[in-house]
Amino acid sequence: MISFQHLYKTYSGNVQALRNIDLEIEQGEFVFLTGPSGAGKTTLFKMISAFDKPTSGQIEVVGYNLNQITPHRIPYFRRKIGVIFQDFKLLPEKTVFENVALPLEVRFEKKTSIAKKVTEILDQVGLRNKADQFPEMLSGGEQQRTAIARALIHQPGVLVADEPTGNLDPDLSEEIMDLLERVCAQGTTVFVATHDHDLVRRRRKRTIHIQDGNLVSDTGRPL
């Protein structure tokens, strides 16, 4: 589902963000990515979502070879994945319903189909009664659940979450993690970057740790 082979990323000024990353994540796996700030977590996620390209090495996500992907194909690739961020990236002038409907609108799906799917997903994340509210009227946890609903509405093969609990208190963080585990249980690969070591310990999932751009441990596979 996600595969990195000898992946290197070097930025100008000879800053090596990633060094020789070899990684395989199978369909339906729940994987944590941990590491201090500047370790290369965000760089890795940018590459998974085709916002950046590696300097060398191979990267394949949901069957797309991202080394060779053309700009024209990138939007179609992104429709196969879901991405959530620490800052939620919700559009403040759109309601919860409209924010969640975006991935379907860009595919020109019919309004009736959009309404049905949005209602279903809002039910799953427990936000059906907030559909007509604007993001600023929601709590942090509700905003993140809205972002998760938006990332899941098109049933992606992979859900990538960059510090999804970074702005939330511990209770809300647990709530969001429960939700992500439920998503994973339905067959979606979930890849979560986090700083929160307690949360990772409690969940007992495969955990990949990177430091200074190097993959230093992987509880799922021997290095």
Partner: peptide, 16 residues
């Protein structure tokens, strides 16, 4: 720009 970024994120084509 934020809206454009989100649209790109959810798979909107450049034409859209």
């Amino acid at each position: 720009r934020r809206e454009i970024e989100v649209l790109e994120l959810v798979g909107a084509t450049p034409n859209f």
